[in-house]
Design a protein around this nucleic acid. Structure first.
Lengths: 119, 119
DNA sequence: CAGGCCAACTAGGTTAACTATGTTGGTCGC
DNA sequence: GCGACCAACATAGTTAACCTAGTTGGCCTG
């Protein structure tokens, strides 16, 4: 693999994996080959594979579970590939709510902890 | 820099830079300090700074020009008419990371609580 | 002075090695 | 059989080193 186009290898691999996910070749929830296996498949070093996976992980397309493997994200919201502004706005609203909720829970639990610790 | 939260350094730096851009501390078109200078500022290695910049470059927030420097994306340089795509994406990413961070802290603290309760 | 050359910067890509941490499966002792 | 332990494998993060390539400015030569 890794054609001799100017495109860096880690982007080529990321593109290829993204294509496989979008094309259904890698089904949602399915595990990817291990980093070492991917490195051998693409005839690339471990580092570039890790970078490629890191990008897709950052994009939310893949989910890495330490000690187990890397899996295609299971949700169905990733189908279009093109994210619309409406999707983003709604996600922002959802996330803001989630942040507020988590902050409140955290504050409550942490205060409980400090009370116990103070005694 | 690089607080001792569980959050990896390259994400902390990426968050910080993203915040500076969104907050206007780094104006559009303005150059970032060089990789070496950033590494010194954050007391981090060159590698993590490069990773952080790479993420923001991938997000479209920063534009790297080989031999010159890294610049905050200029509104006019990607005139698609819609101002907000990158802004929304950055905010979504910020919020997502915030949610993840809060969830981890919450889980850790709650497990501590339950341990104490069990005994 | 003009032009070219070169050294010193810059970002970007690649690789290798090391650590940390989580999961899993097998083996060994009881 | 069961539990503890351990080795092998997994992702994840960090660091260091090396290479490419573009830019800039100064110096030196003609």
């Amino acid at each position: 693999m890794v054609k001799k186009t100017g495109r860096p290898a880690y982007l080529q691999i990321a593109d290829d994996l993204r294509e496989q996910v979008r094309g259904g070749s890698l089904a949602p929830g399915a595990p990817l080959p291990s980093t070492a296996q991917l490195a051998e498949q693409y005839d690339a070093s471990l580092s570039v594979v890790k970078m490629a996976v890191g990008i897709l992980r950052n994009e939310g397309l893949l989910i890495g579970q330490q000690g187990k493997g890397v899996f295609v994200r299971d949700e169905e919201s990733s189908e279009s590939g093109q994210v619309t502004a409406v999707d983003l706005v709604s996600e922002v609203i959802e996330l803001r709510t989630a942040v507020r909720d988590l902050s409140q829970r955290l504050a409550r639990v942490e205060s409980t902890l400090s009370e116990r610790s103070d005694q």
